[in-house]
Design a protein around this nucleic acid. Structure first.
Lengths: 192, 192
DNA sequence: CAAAACTCTTGATATTTATCAAGAGTTTAA
DNA sequence: TTAAACTCTTGATAAATATCAAGAGTTTTG
């Protein structure tokens, strides 16, 4: 599984064999069965997690007990809680495997150090962060601008690879609409 | 105005006089009258903008002509369009002054170079990006989880300094609710 | 300073979306 | 392999929110 991660890195930016070795030495692999948790609310998140296989969801539970999905993560994506990572405070999130998954983990201390020791790696993670931010800005735009139907259309267009791997009611949760409403929207679309 | 920016930097991370000089040499100041634009849809954004004075709003216009406010920026905040900045493509955003404003501008080429030449500056802008991302995650959470009333309560709690400086209907636009609904929400809150 | 533009409110009504409830089909797991 | 859990759909109804329209203050600007 670590090889998948190393291939990913090689594909993303120029990196020497020696640097790959430095990175692989700090990696560990965590296997998750469906419905197992990578992070649970209240725990502090102090690592970086690369999804080599499987699907994860990151969600919060509100006072009424309703779950709200903040993010899905599939192969070649990252997962985690940046807020807890940087603040050292307990996380408000849960990260759960929706399929059996294999995750490459790098402890915070090693990750932060290697970003300096391997400048290209530091640049890469920064570019990743830039893109994550842009994606979240786009999601905000969709969220304040679109109707429920438009939000769903935008989702399946933006994340076609995720759409078919997760239950429909979780897409509804991600979009902030009720599962019944999403079901009816799909019904309407099908009729056209 | 450049001094305000330099004071801001000194306050945020350790920086030498020489480094401050390097930065100040690439800064220019742009004065904006109320309702003037810093960026207009279709233009390419290739700079960094620090708000020394005033309030800006960043918004998009949808097909129906409705404006949706993506962000407000007040003193000591940054404004811009990261998507256009990194892609070199025309921006979909407009950035407009809501009060007379003074903006410190740094061209992309200089900014990117100085991040490397002044490592602490690079670290600082990265931390800034991390915090922006976390803030946008929180906004997404509010957007998919809260009722209109809760969104408004969250906004005035999170951004008390902005609340009183901008028209109410623009807060509604930022939250993705209609101005009439916000007016009624405030009316209800006042009755309690 | 007077007209125009902007801002907020309020009422009436329409539309969108949520909630509650039940049932059918699937998948999961003891 | 069968009961339990999960998933999706559909109907009835309720609640939240948007839209349209008008009017009263306020601010801006020529």
């Amino acid at each position: 599984m670590i090889n998948i991660f190393l291939e990913y890195l090689k594909d993303k930016f120029p990196i020497t064999e020696e640097e790959l070795e430095m990175l692989s030495q700090v990696c560990t692999v965590k296997k998750l069965r469906r419905r197992q948790y990578l992070l649970q609310e209240g725990d502090v998140w102090q690592k970086n997690a690369f999804v080599a296989k499987g699907v994860l969801r990151t969600y919060r539970v509100d006072e009424k007990g309703t779950e709200h999905i903040i993010q899905f993560s599939i192969e070649n994506w990252w997962a985690g809680d940046r807020q807890s990572y940087h603040s050292g405070l307990p996380s408000a999130f849960n990260i759960e495997a929706l399929e059996d998954a294999e995750i490459v983990l790098i402890p915070k201390a090693d990750f932060d150090r290697l970003q300096i020791e391997i400048p290209k790696f530091g640049e890469f993670t920064r570019a990743l962060l830039e893109r994550s931010f842009i994606a979240s800005q786009n999601r905000i735009h969709a969220s304040i601008s679109y109707s429920a139907e438009e939000k769903y259309a935008d989702f399946i267009k933006t994340y076609p690879d995720i759409t078919n791997r997760i239950p429909q009611h979780m897409i509804a949760s991600y979009l902030g609409i009720s599962p019944e409403t999403l079901s009816r929207i799909r019904n309407q679309i099908a009729k056209k």
